[in-house]
Design a protein around this nucleic acid. Structure first.
Lengths: 345, 345
DNA sequence: CTGAAAGCGCTAACAA
DNA sequence: TTGTTAGCGCTTTCAG
């Protein structure tokens, strides 16, 4: 009965009338512009309160062309998105940064290629000022979609193509992988296997490359491809064990896969790290600290990378269209990694 | 260089011009209204293609007052939101249903009370046509916020207050809990413990009530409160074990907590189910099938409940303001639960 | 069946 | 400092 959904919300006009000023002045007060006499401003603010006025975003956007909203698009079925703590952490960082800048995060889930059209429409529809793209595969069409939509974009992870003005944030996957393998080597291991991620993603390829940098002549049977899930890790481990029962160390391209590998190792009766040393990648604490034994891994600061992505995008969006100011042009960011030693290697 | 972000997107006006019709006609075609001669319609469509026209949502919303977007607000820190597969499944169902109706899902994360203001502004700003509220605690102010914003709302889980026109979707928590306890009883267990969820949420209270329905005189020391995390489950189990070493069965208010309890039970040297039978709630397959041993549990169809919430809300939003048609008034939904027997009880 | 015209609510020049 | 005046791009009566 006292439901407001039908009572149309008050407009700026109403506020102005009540405060006895013009719409322009009311607008100035609402938007915090300088140069409104304190007395008037106060009257307007009171009117706003009394009427419960809230600006109509559509109207505002129509003229300012800003939404104060950023889309996060994940090229991954929801199942994986939610199952993988990696995304959670990244989104967390993004969310914090956006919130701090009064921007809304709009999460767009894509279950498959069919959803790309919808996402394309959404981006082109001008709902958001920019987009953060995630988990791209090979020649994913998402970036082009965003580009065509005219929406500034920052990509999570190095994209598969080279292109001067593509912005992204990634960690030093290759260097991290090298550190991992060297650590294993330093432990005296000689039959070192690698469980790679899906090779249609650059992170996987880069980590594999790092592995090969250190072990260029490694037995090719000591490399198996997983899919960044625990199960994938377990299956890869099983295959590795089958092919090379003498394996004495494993570098998994993610903690999540490492946890699966650990499980499989136990099933097969191997002790970790005595028989087989295991090292992961990511340092997702909720995984790496809870495996048995706790996981030695290569740390990347995922949440911080999320924040960086958001910051980068926000700066791009706000870019004053190359006016005289010497704002350094936004550039891709590659963060360092760090070995975290626990019990598994 | 060929970047489009500066080339302003084509407007309906441009499309109309190119097709040699009026803006009105172009609009009709774009929105699929009846009654435009096929030939003209075709010309318009071609113009749309050639220009790559996409309607400006802000402009459209300004006049139609519809957004075709629904907010999902989770009253839970992101950490938990992402860590708990329960949310993932629910969001999945929602997302599917919304997508099927060409609605966008806008996920609003709230890290704490401070974010409520932001959410309130967002809802009141008219960004969305409705809101789905989740994981409400006690006298959460979110529903009132939404109400004040004039945004139709559906709540996930029975709210803590009674109110004729509050829409929600929940499962039969109390009945499910009764089934769980009876099952344990049927197994011959007599020292049955309960790990409750946070008691500021109705789901927890309802499950506890169900437990008590069957075991009204149970030793109060056999009840401990958890927090819906694995750790919380483990800690609660530890407390239980400490207080009543003779416990021979546990009903945990969620699978996630049950998994923690299982871990603690193993640590303490108990065999499951021989020494202690364990039953969970939810049937989150990725948890219940993977614990050791696999978890007997009370199943609720979480994804379907998500869909139902979305459907309910969409129907409410589209409600033709009580015209003559005899659309049944939307009402809360309570779904049944079902015992799924695995190895733990 | 089609077009002309009137706004939706707001911001941003431009005047005063 | 404040008000007046144009629109932003679209939908939707209302005539024709």
């Amino acid at each position: 009965m006292s439901d407001q959904s039908f009572a149309s919300r008050p407009t700026l006009e109403a506020v102005a009338a009540r405060a006895g000023v013009s719409r322009a002045t009311a607008s100035r007060v609402v938007n915090g512009s300088e140069g409104v006499r304190a007395a008037l401003a106060e009257r307007v603010r009171r009117a706003v309160d009394e009427l419960g006025y809230v600006p109509n975003q559509a109207a505002r956007t129509l003229v300012t062309r800003r939404n104060d909203a950023i889309a996060v698009v994940v090229a991954e079925p929801e199942t994986r998105f939610f199952a993988d703590p990696f995304f959670a952490q990244q989104v967390r960082g993004i969310s914090k940064e956006l919130t701090a800048h009064d921007n809304q995060l709009v999460l767009l889930l894509t279950e498959g290629a069919a959803d790309y059209q919808r996402v394309g429409r959404y981006l082109a529809g001008g709902h958001v000022d920019g987009a953060l793209l995630f988990s791209l595969h090979d020649d994913d069409s998402l970036p082009m979609l965003a580009r065509r939509a005219g929406v500034p974009t920052v990509i999570g992870g190095r994209p598969g193509w080279s292109d001067a003005d593509t912005l992204y944030v990634d960690c030093d996957n290759r260097g991290g992988a090298r550190d991992a393998v060297r650590h294993l080597l330093g432990l005296g291991r000689r039959r070192i296997a690698h469980i790679a991620g899906p090779l249609d993603q650059t992170a996987s390829v880069d980590r594999l490359d790092g592995f090969r940098d250190v072990l260029p002549d490694n037995d090719p049977r000591l490399t198996a491809e997983g899919d960044f899930t625990p199960d994938g890790g377990a299956k890869a481990m099983a295959a590795l064990l089958e092919r090379c029962p003498d394996v004495d160390a494993v570098f998994a391209a993610s903690d999540v896969m490492a946890s699966g590998a650990l499980r499989m190792l136990r099933t097969s009766g191997r002790r970790v790290p005595e028989d087989v040393a295991v090292i992961g990648f990511d340092d997702i604490v909720s995984v790496s600290e809870w495996t048995d034994p706790p996981l030695t891994t290569i740390r990347q600061d995922i949440e911080e990378m999320g924040r960086m992505m958001a910051r980068l995008l926000l700066r791009t969006v706000a870019a004053p269209a190359a006016n005289g100011t010497e704002t350094p042009a936004p550039a891709p960011i590659v963060t360092p990694t760090q070995l975290v030693r626990r019990a598994s290697a």
